[in-house]
Design a protein around this nucleic acid. Sequence first.
DNA 1: CTAGGATCCTGTCAGC
DNA 2: TGCTGACAGGATCCTA
Length: 292
Amino acid sequence: MPELPEVETIRRGLEPILVGRQIMDVVISNEKSFHGSSEDIKQFIVGSTIKNIRRRAKVLMIDLSTDYSLVLHLKMTGQIILRGAENWAGGHPNESFVDDLPNTSTRVYFVLDDGAKLFFNDQRKFGWIKLLPTITIDELEFISKLGPEPLIGHPAKEFLTRVRRRNNTTIKAAILDQSVVAGIGNIYADEALWLAKIHPETRVRDLTDSQLASILKGAITAMTTSIESGGSSMQNYVKADGSRGNYLDLFVNVFRREGLACPRCGTIIEKIRVAGRGTHICPVCQQPPKSL
DNA sequence: CTAGGATCCTGTCAGC
DNA sequence: TGCTGACAGGATCCTA
C-alpha cells in the first residue's frame, strides 16, 4: 500500500533517529522477505553503522558503513516500526503500529546498539529487503527503468514523453506504471485524476498535453499535502483519546469515499474497476470518454 | 515492443 | 455460526 508519500514519511521519520546507530543483529522469520546470504549478513550488516536513509519511488534505501545497503520495498502491507528508547512507526497503518512485537506479521527485525529493535512487518509477504553493494543499486532494472521523481526538479517534460509511450492504454494504468512516473499508486492515481477532472478510463491518446500536465500537477498536489500532513505514521494512527485515526481523512477527496459527496460538486462518489484496481470517481466532475 | 490478466500471500468483510 | 468469494494503498510474469 505504501506509495511515495508514505515511504517519504518513513524516511523523514527514521533519518534523525537511525543515522549514526549501529546494527548488532538481524533476525529473519520469513526467508522470502530477505534476500541476502547469512555470510553477507555477518560481514556487511552486523557491526555496521547506518550512514544515510534515501528514497527512490516507493523504495527505501538504508546505506551502511560497509558500502552495502538495505534496499526495501513495502509493497501492499509493509511497515517499519522502531521500538526502544524512541518509538516510531510508518507504512501500512494497522494495529501492528501499537501491538507487542514481534507478532505474526513480523518478517525481519534488526537489533540496534542500545537494544532498540527495528521491525519489518508485512502481513501479505509481498514486500522484501535486499542486501546489496551500495554502488550497484542504480544498475538494478527496477531502479534504472523508473520514471522521474514527481516531487523533485521539473518532471513535466520527462513525464509527458513517457506517458505518450502508453498512448493505447487507460490514463489510470499509465500513471500507475512506475516507468512513466515514480511513486504513484492507487490512492494518488485516483486523487490526481479527480483534481484534474479526468475520467480514469480515458485513453492516453485522447488526452491533450495540457490535460496530461494537469494530471501530473494533481498527483504532486495530493502527494505534497499527504507528506505535509504527517503521512501514514503512528502519530496519525493513534489519536489523543486512544481511538484510531485515518490519515487519509487529512487529504483525500475521492479515495475510499464511495457513497459520500464529492467535495467539489456534491455528487455521490462512485467506485468502479479500472486497470484491475478499485477506482473512485465523481461521475459528474469526471465525465467518461465518448468511446465508452 | 505493448496491453491486460494471473499471480504471489494473509486477513477481513459481505452475503448466503 | 460457518462457509465462500471478493477484495486489498504493488509490481512482476506470462500470454496474445
